[in-house]
Amino acid sequence: MPGLRARLWQAGLLLGFLLLWEWASRTGRIDPFFFSVPSEIAKRVWRWFATGEVYPHLYVTTAEMLLAFAIGTLLGVVFGLWLALAPGVAAVLDPYVKALNAIPRVVLAPIFTLWFGLGLLSKVALGVTLVFFVAFFNTYQGVKEVSPIVLQNARLLGARRRHLLAHVYLPAAASWIFSSLRTSIGFAVIGAVVGEYLGSAAGLGYLIAQAEGVFDTTGVFAGMAVLMAFVLALDALVGALERRLLVWRPKEGGGR
């Protein structure tokens, strides 16, 4: 954890940046039409929440994102475990995994819109294609890096396959999976927002696209600010969960 001193610097930096932006916009050094003004953005965000007009959009984006996150992670972990524990299957599927992962996901959005419609499902699908690979590669790597000594020991102590899965492979992969969760959240948001941006009737991405359509930069920045705060909150949540579940890990750079 950073100390109080670092915290003050962090707050100061943000404040300084916002003040500079505000001052530059108000004095005409930068064009408010293109860059908006922080106080206006804050007012817009405030109005969104005060009138409640942002809630349906926030709700839709959250739902899409959480679904993409959960489904993508689950599939990724399951496939990661499977391929890591079945090297034969992994050898066969390897080029396909690489090929699928090579597709820039944005180009899938139109296809998913055709397949799944303009609603929630097409955004979830887009998010899943992003989240899946992060969880998959991390789980695969985590399982591959289990210490062979620990594994042999567990087997000699009588562990069967399901015991190994529950007590050796999954916990060993957990720190990898957790680090992937934090990346995944970002990807789930990208999936949801990009999907909305390209075609939808609700969500923060839709909100931003609408604002952009009428050259309302304040609206665009306000949407971005809400998204940012939202992702940070989720990230903190996963971080807290991680600290709880990985208590067994030695603290970095300290202790025995």
Binding site: I149, V150, A154, A172, R249
Partner: peptide, 8 residues
């Protein structure tokens, strides 16, 4: 080497 499970 140590062979006990570090997460237990």
């Amino acid at each position: 080497q140590d062979a006990i499970l570090p997460w237990k």
